[in-house]
Design a protein around this nucleic acid. Structure first.
Lengths: 339, 339
DNA sequence: ATCCTGAATGTAATCCTTTACATCGCATTG
DNA sequence: CAATGCGATGTAAAGGATTACATTCAGGAT
């Protein structure tokens, strides 16, 4: 079932059919009608491969994320896909499981699939993969990396703002001893968040105590283990901020297991505002990552790049604190203070 | 950068290059070497569209789910994609948001994209969409629908088993008054689960009281509202089973808001065993849906269908109860009993 | 009547790979 | 030595849509 058959049935040439199908001007209404009828009659669907072959564009975008099981991503994927869909673009997406090698393979596969553009939202990125894309002449945008912003379009998100708000909140509640659950420091974004936390802390004139910083694997389990460590510190922080909500949830469980009541004896703040944050008990105060906005920006970025426009990520976006029930003033006489 | 240039550089014909690239036998090792070197030198990547055009297969599968925000799906997607990836197949995936019209559009788009096969895991399915796929000659498999099993390959999951285990558990704890949070009855899978619940209940010789059945929208919010209704019933059920975990989580929140302690004053069982089930408090007893297995079966089904084999969904799969902390014996003197 | 213009449509080259078939050269055999 | 066979490689058609360029035709100007 090809365009020729349609042409024959409509008594026109293939060129005319093509013009009608693509909505080009300069075809008589009557002819348009004939063609459309033929298309409908024959149940004709154009062959996208032939089209792509000729035109050189696939109307296919690639989206690479770190971890499908992190609730952070579905919303991002959803937003990205909705925009793409509206433009008749399909999205093929894969995840790296926080693994640099897998990222490399993902990128390679997308190049081989000859996607028109690639959006990357992973915690880890390494330049080789990006170079590969660049060589292939495919536009790319990074959603979670300021590190390569000079060389590759990136959506700028200023983590510090979120941390400052979180600290303001904790300080105003009376906290001074603030711990941090970091992510693996080989992940750029985890490192970025930790740096942002440090910066914000310093701005408030507070000190970073090394025994109040623990490291987790970005997942629930890692957060649990990290919190166990923090709870052993002496003195113990009265409030803890986690690099992401998944770990914050783990931290909450660890606190619960250790019979440390949140928020009475320990305040806890997450990062991202994933759906689960409002579903655990107590619901989690957290720094909301503007991911729908990021996805939209990224998508537009890629579209612009494809049009040959000069691309920049736009003005900096800021995460903001969402206050729920995991934060409260510190207990007057904490166990530590007694000791 | 096309195969001709590679051929020229390697001093062979395009046919030979193609043979090497596709690993066909009957090429001298020395020639293979020459070609591979040329490919590497030129950084040549074959054009998949040209290939697909000629060969008629895209090595692209479509995967359609209901709702990315339901934690049920990521694991399914992950499993499916992992298998596909191992076979060099890419997956384009979309979600319907429980909307039949969107399903239709999704299917249409995938046909237009000329995917090799489509896997559907949605709560709602309607025959028009399936017919469309059938007409296009594309293999399809249903992962959540027994209804069309006669006409279209489906992976059989026997919900009743799960409900029977859940009821056994509740009965052995001493419950007799068991409520149910159903899903929208226009969703086939929701209807299927409700029927399965009824069947299991009847087998135990128990009665279905209509005021102990409420309906939610498959999401957290719907579960919350449904539970509010159930809590108003008089007498009140001492245990409630929900059609999925998302609603069970909402139900948990409603119980909490109404100061009904779970599991002390109310036992609650979910369905699916999504990650959040073990993260809420109390952690949720739930019926685990074997979705990785389902995904694997579905994928293999499609592969077989493409090979022209006769396809069946394989032996029936069974969900099983996972006992956590949301179930306990009923309170001796429930408020209802007093009244 | 002739020429010109512009709108509508047609013709055929093109995109790149795969593959059926043709060819070549060498070794084996009668 | 000619014939045969076979392994290795080459040639060219095919796949379906787009599009530069060519053609046709109607109507207006001269």
């Amino acid at each position: 079932m090809d365009i020729q058959q349609v042409a024959k049935r409509a008594n026109v040439s293939t060129a005319t059919v093509s013009r009608v199908l693509n909505g080009f001007p300069g075809v008589r209404p009557k002819t348009v009608d004939k063609v459309q009828r033929a298309v409908a009659d024959l149940n004709y669907v154009p062959n996208p491969n032939a089209r792509s072959l000729r035109v050189g564009s696939t109307r296919l975008f690639g989206l690479i994320v770190s971890d499908v099981n992190n609730q952070f991503f579905p919303e991002l994927i959803d937003a990205f896909e909705a925009l793409a869909s509206a433009e008749g673009i399909d999205v093929i997406f894969t995840h790296t499981n926080y693994d640099l090698k897998r990222l490399h393979r993902c990128v390679r596969r997308m190049i081989e699939r000859s996607v028109d553009a690639i959006a990357i939202m992973t915690s880890e990125v390494e330049e080789d993969s990006l170079k590969q894309v660049h060589k292939a002449g495919i536009p790319v945008v990074l959603m979670n990396q300021r590190r390569y912003a000079a060389k590759y379009p990136s959506i700028p998100v200023e983590y510090t703002t979120g941390f400052r708000e979180a600290l303001d909140h904790l300080l105003s509640l009376g906290h001074r001893d603030i711990g941090f659950i970091a992510g693996p420091q080989n992940l750029n974004s985890a490192r970025g968040r930790k740096d942002a936390f440090r910066t914000a802390l310093r701005k408030h004139g507070l000190h970073v105590r090394s025994e109040w910083i623990a490291e987790g694997d970005m997942r629930v389990e890692g957060g649990r283990i990290a919190m166990q460590k923090l709870l052993e510190a002496n003195p113990r922080p009265t409030a803890v901020i986690a690099t992401n909500d998944m770990m914050a949830v783990g931290a909450l469980q660890a606190a619960h297991a250790a019979r440390v009541s949140v928020p009475k004896n320990l305040s806890l703040i997450g990062f991202d505002d994933i759906p689960i944050a409002s579903l655990v008990r107590p619901s989690l105060s957290t720094i909301r990552h503007p991911r729908r906005e990021v996805a939209a920006r990224a998508f537009n970025c890629l579209q612009s790049a494809l049009k040959g426009e000069i691309v920049n990520g736009g003005p900096t976006l800021h995460p903001h604190l969402v206050i729920r029930n995991s934060t409260a003033p510190p207990a007057r006489k904490s166990r530590n203070a007694c000791k």
